[in-house]
Write a protein that binds this DNA or RNA. Structure first.
Lengths: 99, 99
DNA sequence: AAAACAGTTCGTATTTATACGAACAAATGG
DNA sequence: CCATTTGTTCGTATAAATACGAACTGTTTT
């Protein structure tokens, strides 16, 4: 093992973070829904996806914490969109990773 | 929820499978090592990575089961390579996913 | 003010991931 | 044949992911 305090490079951590966020089919499906119409209400997605509402909230949180999406809360509705800046960052990193 | 027996499309499952395999920084690092020199012995990687040997074996297994790499066992050495066919499949899927 | 609506968070159960050392396996060198 | 080398698998401990219903939080409607 290399004697560094940090185990992995920032780039490796970032690639892993984005990849990990996309590492569940329902999150892939969520992103596809958002990409199809730019933004989407929680309820719209809930109608399309085979999971409980609370579970959907959790997956949305994972995507939000990875930076791939952002939510705008206007109770009782919440609108989610792709975070384009980070989306492009992820795109660049992943494409670069695959050469 | 849609009333389908299958919860997600094959494509969504595949994207998630590949993404999940890349969802840990050490696996990203492993792939980078393999891409740098096409093939690599377990021991070479073990020298570069901050994890125990047995843990490395487990991560290699994850990548192997996702189809991204393949191992050639010639005891006591094992050589790992990128599985180019699946690598290109993953590349295409991921790039397509990001538009 | 009470009920309804749309989500989120909490509590919890179950599964999967991650990590390590010890034990094992398969070929090679003394 | 026994020791060494190189990985793998096993046993195990701990942490993280996944899923659901129940309870909660703000608006809006009645």
């Amino acid at each position: 093992m290399a004697i560094t305090s940090k185990k992995y490079t920032d780039k490796q951590e970032l690639v892993a973070k984005f990849a990990n966020a996309l590492g569940h089919p329902v999150r892939v499906a969520i992103i596809e829904l958002l990409n199809k119409q730019s933004c989407c209400y929680h309820g719209d997605m809930s109608d399309e996806l085979p999971i409980a509402n609370s579970t959907l909230s959790q997956h949305l949180k994972v995507l939000r914490e990875a930076g791939l999406i952002q939510g705008e809360i206007n109770p009782p509705k919440t609108k989610y969109c792709i975070n384009k800046e980070n989306w492009n960052l992820a795109k660049g990193l992943l494409i670069g990773f695959f050469d």
